[in-house]
Amino acid sequence: MKAKRFITNTACHILLAVLSVIWVLPIVYVVLTSLRKEGGSYKSYIIPKEFTLDNYVNLFKNNLGGLDFKQWFLNTLVIALFTMLISGFMVIAVSYCMSRLRFKMRKPFMNVALILGMFPGFMSMFAIYYILKGLGFLETGLLKQIALILCYSGGAGLGFYMAKGFFDTIPKTIDEAAYIDGASKWETFIHITLPMSKPIITHTLLTAFMGPWTDYIFAKVIMGQDTRYYTIAIGLWTMLEKEYIQTYYTQFYAGCVLISIPISILFLLTQKCYVEGVSGAVKG
């Protein structure tokens, strides 16, 4: 029995190790390329001949011919923070209503949300573009950034499935106990449900925060040629365009590594919260 368990355990660990290598190698490649001294795009070898940090240093020197990495980073950070707050609030509010409150429009709303989710996300993008243009949001760079935040968080209320699924697993008796103690529904939500839902809240906030870092379709359509107000994603994408790729290929990877760092750190923090929160919330 003991030997059998030892064998399965070892097999599992070996399998996990092999899988981890597969999942980590491409990222190692990104880091290696970002440290490569030899310029140019593709090379016939993987490990750079010479290592350097110049790619990173050059990103922050404003020598990129209108490509300003620092500015892009700040733009994206601000947009991501606002998006996170607005859409985080929307998702949690809607999913709580869907899970815990009972009202006439509940099922219709869920059906409508399901139907809306089936249309391709940017099918109506050109319509959104013209609406924003009509409202005067595309006049200056700053307004364009607000427009982008609105684009990212406007429809967030429809993405409630995950959080609703989580709220559904919290026993109803806990709510009922609070009502009997004289708590209003609002107080129950704030003082009982929310503290128990840290994992799903972090999950929601995180997904919302990461949206602007990775999206470049909306950003590209709204920002147009205004490079100063670009977000990171379209900025880096520009570096891979034909006229830039030979010069900026390695800097592109340096930029990729740099933006991955803040997101990774956030991830580690939330991971901890996620696992602890879930196991601590409601144990059967």
Binding site: L19, S20, W23, V24, P26, I27, Y29, V30, T33, M210, W213, T214, Y216, I232, A233, L236, W237, L240, Y253, C256, I259, S260, I263, S264, F267, L268, Q271, V275
Partner: peptide, 18 residues
């Protein structure tokens, strides 16, 4: 968990382009 999470932490367009 961390080993697999790294690939999420890296923005998707970066992983896709690489």
């Amino acid at each position: 968990r961390f080993m697999f999470v790294i690939s999420i932490a890296v923005p998707q367009f970066v992983t896709l382009l690489s």
